[in-house]
Design a binder for these strands. Sequence first.
DNA 1: AGATGGAATTGAACAGGTTCAACACGGAGG
DNA 2: CCTCCGTGTTGAACCTGTTCAATTCCATCT
Lengths: 239, 239
Amino acid sequence: MSAVATLSSKGQKTRERILEVALELFQERGYEATTMRMIATAAGVSLGNSYYYFPTKEHLVQGFYNRIHIDLVAASKEQLAKARSLRERLRVVMRAQVDVMLPYHAVSGALFRSALTPGSPLSPFSEASGPARRKAINYLREVIDGSGSRFPADLAANLPELLWLYELGLVMFWVHDNSDGQRRTYELIEDSSDAIVRLLGMANLPGLRAIRKRMLTWVAAVIKENAGPLVLEGTSTAD
Amino acid sequence: MSAVATLSSKGQKTRERILEVALELFQERGYEATTMRMIATAAGVSLGNSYYYFPTKEHLVQGFYNRIHIDLVAASKEQLAKARSLRERLRVVMRAQVDVMLPYHAVSGALFRSALTPGSPLSPFSEASGPARRKAINYLREVIDGSGSRFPADLAANLPELLWLYELGLVMFWVHDNSDGQRRTYELIEDSSDAIVRLLGMANLPGLRAIRKRMLTWVAAVIKENAGPLVLEGTSTAD
DNA sequence: AGATGGAATTGAACAGGTTCAACACGGAGG
DNA sequence: CCTCCGTGTTGAACCTGTTCAATTCCATCT
C-alpha cells in the first residue's frame, strides 16, 4: 500500500517538503531537467525516500493540479462576486485560470503531457483526479448559478460538466500558445465566452434542439464513464 | 544531419526493417514494454544503429502515423466512391479511420501520449508532422468535394481543417474508449457526422453567422501558427 | 590496385527513473 | 527496561533511453 493513506505528522511534513521543493524546481528548470535526485537532495531526503511518498515522478504533478485550483479560487472569488452576467463570470474565471498557471507555462507541456494518457492517474478523467475534478466542476456550477441565466432542464443539468470541458480545451490551447504573455489565449477567452453564451441562448431553436439532446448525452458519457477497470499497459493503477 | 535525407537502398532497407519490427513489438507488448534493445536485436542491428535512423524512440511513432493514413485511404477509397452525401462520406472515412487503428488500441495511449505535447515533433501540429497532416487534410478535402454540398466561401475554405480537428477529437475519444470493440466510438461517429452536417447547414442562420466568422478565424490560427521557433525544454527541435 | 570520403554500424559509457532489501526510529505493550 | 512492529528512511543496484568516438563498408576517383 502506498503511504498516502496513513499520514503521521512526521511523514506528512516530509511529503509536503518534497512536493514544495519539486514544484519550485519544476518552475526553475523545467520538468524534464529536474531530476528526482535533485528533488531528494534539495528536500534533504534520500532518493528512495521520495519514492516512498510519490510512486513516480508524475505523481508529483497531481500536487500541482491541486495547488492550481486553490489559487484559481483565491484569484477569482472577489471579481466573481462583482460579475453578474454569465458571460462576464465566465470571462473572470477563465482569465484567472490562465493567470494562475502563468508561472508554469514553460513547463506546462511536460506537466500536461500525461494528462491525456488514458489510464494514467493524472488524466483529468481518472479516478485519482476525481476530487480535483469535482472541485473544479462545482466551482463552475457556482459560476453558472450566480448568474441570472436559466436553461432547459437537461442543459442546466450538464452545463457545469460542459463548461469544464471548455476549460480543459482552453488550457490545451494555452499550453500550445506561444504568443507573448499568451495574449492569444486571452483573446480566445473573450471570443469564446461570448460565443458560448450566445450558443446557449440558441439551444432551444428548432433545428438545434435535437442535436443538443444528443450532444449532452455524449458529454455526460465522457465525464462519467471513467470508473471502469482501466489498466494501462504494465502498470496496475492500484494506488 | 539526420539520415532521413540521404537514403541509399542499403540504409533504406535497414530503416524499413527497424520500423517494421518496432511496430510489431509495440503491438505485441505495448510501447513502454518494448525496449530499444529489443527492437535492435529483433531487427538484427546494434542498439546504436537504431538511433542512426530514429533519433528517439518516439520518432518510431511517426512511422506509425504514416502507415495509418495509407491504410485509411486503402480501406475507405472504394466505399467512398459509392457514397454521395457528405454525411455518408464522413461516416465512411471516420469508420475506416477507427477500423485501421483497431490493432493498436491497446497501446494507443502511449502512442498518442506525445501527440499533445507542444513542440514535440510528434504533435500533429508540428512542422515534422506537416506532410502527414497535409495528406490527411487533403483527403478530407476530397471527401467534401465529392459530395454535392456547397458552403459559404469562408466556411468552404476552412472546412477541411475543421473536419481534421473533428477527426482528431474522434481519435482522442477512441483512445479513451474502453467499450468492447470501441463500440461507443462507432456510435459517436453516427451521431456526430449527422450533427456536423446539420450544423453546417445552419451556418448561415442570422444568429450563427457572426459566431461562425470568429470560430473560423480561430480554427485557421490553430492549424497554421505552428511553424514558429518553438523549442521544448532542453531538447532543440533540430532534426 | 590504391586512396578517399561519406554512409553505416558498433559497443561502451552515461544519465536518470525506479526497485528493493536492509536498517533506523519511536511508540505500545509487557 | 526490553521487545515488538509498523512507519520512515537509506543507498546501492537495475533497467532503459540516449550519446559518441571509433570502426567498417563501399562506391567512386585516380
